[in-house]
Computed example of a mutant assay.
Amino acid sequence: MTTWNVLGHVTLPATPESVSEARRFAAKLLDDTDRTATAQLLISEACTNSVRHSNSRHGGTFTLLLSDSGHSLRCEVIDAGAPTRPTRRHGTEPRDHGHGILLIETLATRSGYDTDETGNLHTWFEIA
């Protein structure tokens, strides 16, 4: 079993402005590497999904939690959940949004989501 050391966490209002704040928070904690650049992109996607689709968007918050195992970085976005679960959109029609889960699944080493006993959604990804 992997042991994760928490690097830090931040709780932010579920508003579009908080997505860039979450990226800046991660940049302060992480070194300046390709892994950090990838993490910031995927953090933007996960936080945007929280702001747009979760019940947190109704005046709530989301939390970004960053952890390190020594070999991998784990990023987790926790929000109030929603009636639907994160899903990859299929199809080839051009669109301006809807690629977040695809980016996470493609660029992360591992990814997924869990719902806790209170209904909060934990969307996570790991980058080796």
Rank of each mutant, 00 (worst) to 15 (best):
69 S>R: 03
69 S>C: 02
69 S>F: 04
70 G>T: 02
70 G>N: 00
70 G>L: 00
70 G>R: 07
71 H>C: 00
71 H>M: 10
71 H>E: 14
71 H>V: 08
71 H>R: 10
72 S>Y: 03
72 S>E: 03
73 L>N: 00
73 L>W: 03
73 L>G: 06
74 R>D: 07
74 R>C: 05
74 R>L: 08
75 C>D: 04
75 C>V: 14
75 C>W: 01
75 C>R: 03
75 C>E: 02
75 C>T: 13
76 E>P: 02
76 E>M: 11
76 E>R: 08
76 E>L: 12
76 E>H: 05
77 V>N: 01
77 V>E: 02
77 V>W: 00
77 V>I: 13
77 V>H: 00
77 V>S: 01
77 V>T: 11
78 I>Y: 05
78 I>M: 08
78 I>V: 15
78 I>A: 04
78 I>E: 02
78 I>W: 01
79 D>I: 01
79 D>C: 06
79 D>W: 07
80 A>H: 06
80 A>I: 05
80 A>V: 07
80 A>F: 13
81 G>C: 10
81 G>R: 07
82 A>Y: 01
82 A>V: 03
82 A>K: 02
82 A>I: 05
82 A>G: 14
82 A>S: 08
82 A>Q: 02
83 P>E: 11
83 P>F: 01
83 P>T: 07
83 P>S: 12
83 P>Q: 09
84 T>C: 09
84 T>E: 12
84 T>I: 09
84 T>Q: 13
84 T>S: 11
84 T>Y: 12
84 T>P: 00
85 R>K: 12
85 R>P: 01
85 R>T: 09
85 R>D: 05
85 R>F: 09
85 R>H: 09
86 P>S: 06
86 P>G: 02
86 P>W: 00
87 T>G: 08
87 T>N: 04
87 T>L: 15
87 T>I: 12
87 T>R: 15
88 R>V: 13
88 R>Q: 09
88 R>D: 03
89 R>D: 11
89 R>I: 15
89 R>S: 15
90 H>S: 15
90 H>E: 14
90 H>G: 11
90 H>N: 12
90 H>M: 06
90 H>K: 11
90 H>Y: 12
90 H>C: 08
91 G>N: 12
91 G>D: 05
91 G>V: 12
91 G>H: 05
91 G>L: 06
92 T>V: 14
92 T>I: 10
92 T>D: 15
92 T>E: 08
92 T>S: 12
92 T>L: 12
92 T>R: 15
93 E>A: 14
93 E>F: 08
93 E>M: 07
93 E>T: 08
94 P>E: 04
94 P>Y: 05
94 P>T: 09
95 R>H: 06
95 R>S: 12
95 R>F: 03
96 D>P: 03
96 D>T: 14
96 D>I: 06
96 D>R: 10
96 D>N: 08
96 D>Y: 08
96 D>E: 14
96 D>G: 10
97 H>G: 10
97 H>P: 05
97 H>T: 15
97 H>A: 11
97 H>D: 10
97 H>L: 12
97 H>N: 12
97 H>F: 10
97 H>W: 11
97 H>Y: 13
97 H>C: 15
98 G>C: 07
98 G>A: 10
98 G>N: 14
98 G>S: 09
